[in-house]
Write a protein that binds this DNA or RNA. Structure first.
Lengths: 221, 221, 221, 221
DNA sequence: GATGAATGAGTCTTCATTCAT
DNA sequence: AATGAATGAAGACTCATTCAT
């Protein structure tokens, strides 16, 4: 009863999948700790696999980082959808998303930054950025309509804000996440729509998504 | 009396000083643009001096970065003193300091971050950190006494906050500074002491200065 | 009597033989196209078998190349015998052999060269060289006795001449063979015994078979 | 008296020039002996310089080989001009050129082959090929007009013929050159214009210079 | 017996540091 | 005291060989 052949990969395929997950996790950690100039061999060592296996799966350091970046973007999209689905309140959804995003940051490495501005744009990255934009627009739009988020803050501010809040703090363990979340709450206090008589205007124009693309991708792209 | 030797360096000494200033400026720019893994030769090239001269003054890349970091810390101290001296209002002084610190960041490279966590602690760094702490305590203490700064924010939060706000955004030209200042204003909105009935508490304990030392200095130190 | 086991291999043995032939053909092609530094995996891929099977049959790249070289030498012996048997005229047999040898070169890869000087001598190679020498002596001796081949040309010149004529010309398709045969005819014109009053003497001593052994085998052998 | 500052480079410049010559010589030798897959470090070792110095002068293995190839082509042009200038007889000039070209081969490594088909075409290579063609046309044209060279041999045959005659024979010392010259004389016997009643025609069309370009340069070029 | 993923030593290339001029 | 070429250790990447399935 119940043929599970196709559903549950076994043996070699299973190990390959496990290796891939360990590789991605190791890459996130290593890039987070040492930046772009971390040796690829350190990633392989931490994943417990040989250089050859790493390079079989990711033919270059750059492609490995691209995958990492794409996985991070997809994770953000998922977290945005989850926040919208599970939090009835617009502000709660908005805050929940930032909280989730930063928490994932702290434990498993860089999401967008670290390798930002070094990797060329690809079709996949463009598509992922589009999905991310749609998801963040929904979050920000909902909060704006509810009147709980200051009007001069846009969806394109979110990635930069996350990039700032996730700035490398070379501490291992949960302390880094705790510090990140501390400053997130500070920023959330600044994001709450102020009473009309206390409203201030953020200086400088908001970033737009085209500008983000320039920030994230290599100049030549 | 009447000795002007020290007051007016001439000839070689003068050129040496000029070289040193150019070197430091070049190092700030290059590290800001390309990160820690920028080649030393690029710094020499941009400063317009030979490799030999650079290495005569700074016997290693690490020592050059240490100097750069110390100069950045001293600049912060100076900016704090200036803000206190020139701004009669406690909040204005506090905000002015953060503004000055970030503006200097944007134009001339990294202050504390970028090389953070890579360099060993030295007596000079410890002393500079003490002076920085004293200066920031004065700023924060004044703001707290005036009741304009949220009570759960400490002087040790400032370096981390600056580190976050100054996170490398790979944009050249004034746009990076404009974006940095945009998020500074957002944070300032969150830092303003709220009315008692709207007060929130930042999660997680505030960092302390001993912890900062761990964040900034290489593990082995 | 009545035992046909050895005569008609069946099933596995048959497949193994077919694999072996495909492997040898693939090796000749790949080494011809890309030289000694072609990846072994390319040979396996082109033969349509896995790496494991290749390494079961040939425990190292070097041993594979040795086999290839031996097969090439045996092919030369066969071609010499065929030429002697099928061509009644001494010159025709001599020319036919060179033509056949070069044509096989062009289509299926290197015979002697390409890997020359890289592989150690073995008993098998020595024995094959002896057989080759005997076959070429017969061809050259016949032509000398018939007075159609210049007297200062020896059987030991033939392998070197073939090595020269078969020098890798990186052209795919039949064009390489056509070019090879063009220069063969040029050389044949020079090999024809001249009239006594026009005779010239080739400079330098003829190679001998001991010298060939040094040229073909790795120094350490 | 007599200012020799500009004429005779001294000190550092002198050493740089010496290094460059040693490097080119070492590259010719190493590529000749071990082919394209010889380690660059072996070239540096044999030239007696460090890897860094080699890479300062030639930023990649490919560029080093390109220089080597260009120097070889220029040497051929020079040898052709010399042969035409110093030999009054058309056949003597033709034979002298081939002799000189092959002799240089034997002693100092590959001229055209070895790396052929691996390097992209560049403007410099195209220009050098044009000069080579002009020089060889003069040699071959003279011999044809004098009626001493078989009519179906063209200037585009010469590079291929040299490539064949210079085929790697892994012998060090003068013996390789002696063997090369032995087969050159054989070929020269075949090149002499035969009496009309004995004339043969070389099979296959002669190569043309466009085809040579394909043979020498990497496919993508 | 066949397969192809995993391994890790070896190669090309860069860059911190030294040193002859 | 200044210069910039030389050095060689370290990092990205490839490929001969092994081994679990």
């Amino acid at each position: 009863m119940g043929d599970t052949h196709a559903a549950k990969p076994r043996g070699r395929q299973r190990e390959a999948d496990r290796n891939d997950a360990r590789l991605m996790q190791a890459a996130r950690e290593v890039f987070a700790e040492r930046g772009w100039d971390a040796p690829v061999s350190e990633i392989a060592r931490r994943a417990g696999i040989g250089m050859g296996s790493l390079y079989r799966r990711y033919p270059s350091k750059e492609l490995l980082a691209q995958r990492m970046r794409l996985a991070g973007m997809e994770q953000l999209v998922t977290q945005a959808h989850t926040a919208l689905a599970e939090e009835p309140d617009a502000w709660a959804a908005f805050a929940r998303f930032l909280h989730d995003a930063l928490s994932a940051q702290g434990s498993s490495g860089p999401l967008l930054p670290q390798v930002g501005g070094r990797l060329p744009a690809t079709d996949e990255v463009v598509a992922a950025a589009d999905r991310l934009r749609a998801a963040l627009d929904a979050l920000v739009g909902g909060a704006h309509r509810a009147g709980v988020l200051r009007a001069d803050f846009t969806s394109a501010d979110i990635p930069l804000l996350l990039e700032h809040l996730a700035a490398r703090i070379p501490v291992t363990g949960g302390r880094a996440t705790a510090l990140h979340l501390r400053y997130l709450d500070l920023v959330l206090a600044g994001l709450r729509a102020p009473a009309a008589d206390q409203a201030t205007i953020l200086p400088g124009p908001a970033p737009d998504w085209a500008e983000l693309s320039e920030l994230w991708n290599a100049p030549g792209g």
